[in-house]
Write a protein that binds this DNA or RNA. Structure first.
Length: 104
DNA sequence: GGGTTGACTGTTC
DNA sequence: CGAACAGCCAACC
């Protein structure tokens, strides 16, 4: 399966996220050079459930929401908490600050 | 080639 | 402070 340049970049960046750290769709989008393409980023992850090669569960929404997950959001939350990351309803990026992973 | 869809976001009510 | 609205982008039909 061939991936578009966009998807390749997304997966590459997400793969860079170390365990215990969390990033957001917007952050990844910004790293791509498309700050407004957060939706497309989520889309790319949605269609590429490379669970082993890509820790897609470490990417959450900017507003603190858990975000979506191909295998259920509950599963995603479980994985995150397992890595020591608590995700609440409206936690805002500020609260993530210590856990956020910034690219470049 | 045009319209729809979705793992989103920032702004407005 | 919480809910609704309207943009934005790439893949799919």
């Amino acid at each position: 399966m061939i991936l578009t340049n966009f998807e390749q970049t997304v997966l590459t960046l997400v793969r860079r996220i170390p365990a215990g750290r969390v990033s957001t769709y917007a952050l990844v989008a910004r790293a791509l050079g498309r700050p407004e393409a957060a939706r497309a980023v989520g889309n790319a992850l949605h269609r590429n459930p490379q669970l082993v090669t890509t820790p897609c569960h470490r990417v959450v929404r900017s507003d603190g929401q858990i975000g979506g997950y191909r295998q259920g959001s509950s599963r995603k939350r479980a994985l995150l908490e397992q890595e020591g990351v608590t995700v609440n309803r409206h936690q805002s990026v500020a609260n993530f600050e210590q856990a956020l992973y910034r690219f470049s």
